[in-house]
């Protein structure tokens, strides 16, 4: 017999889909509630077998704090980038920088790379090597718009963004 877990595999994802469906329709009319519930149940059920199991969030509080910190950093980073863009091109010091990673989980690295792209004048370019076998050290390759001090930037990425992510996952 099928248990509840088979019929309703991922409750949190279902709730998320339901909310997104209501937001898409911008309405809480009965018909949208009905279809929202139907889709929120059906979609996770159908894709459940193809899903890669990702680690859950261990500390939601830290995760929330991380999100807020990143939002603040996005604003600061924007003002910095605008100042750089309006200045003369010759003064820019673009650079490629390698950041050694302590994170091993793919989802955590993805979030770190996305955060780094959205924040401090950096775009993440690559993760090397892509498929680490065992204990191999991985690196995140960044492109920096204006590099003042390489060691300081690496430390900032590691302390400010990587450390909380290590706690969360």
């Amino acid at each position: 017999m099928l248990s509840l877990k088979n019929w309703w595999p991922t409750p949190v994802r279902s709730l998320f889909l339901f909310l997104v469906w209501l937001l898409l329709n911008n309405s809480v009319a009965l018909i949208h509630l009905f279809f929202g519930l139907l889709l929120a149940w059906l979609i996770p059920l159908l894709i459940h077998k193809f899903r890669l199991i990702q680690p859950g969030i261990k500390k939601p509080g830290v995760a929330l704090g991380y999100g807020l910190m990143v939002l603040g950093d996005i604003i600061v980073a924007n003002l910095q980038v605008i100042r750089l863009v309006l200045g003369p091109n010759k003064k820019l010091r673009p650079a490629f920088v390698m950041v050694p990673l302590d994170l091993t989980d793919n989802l955590a690295i993805t979030i770190l790379a996305s955060t780094v792209s959205l924040t401090p004048g950096t775009v993440s370019a690559d993760v090397l090597p892509l498929n680490a076998e065992g204990a191999e050290q991985r690196f995140l390759l960044l492109h920096v718009l204006d590099l003042a001090d390489e060691a300081q930037l690496i430390e900032q990425v590691k302390l400010r963004y990587e450390a909380p992510l290590k706690e969360i996952f």
Partner: peptide
């Protein structure tokens, strides 16, 4: 590479 910074942030 530097041009890419504009659209990702601003």
């Amino acid at each position: 590479y530097t041009r890419l910074h504009g659209p990702t942030k601003a």
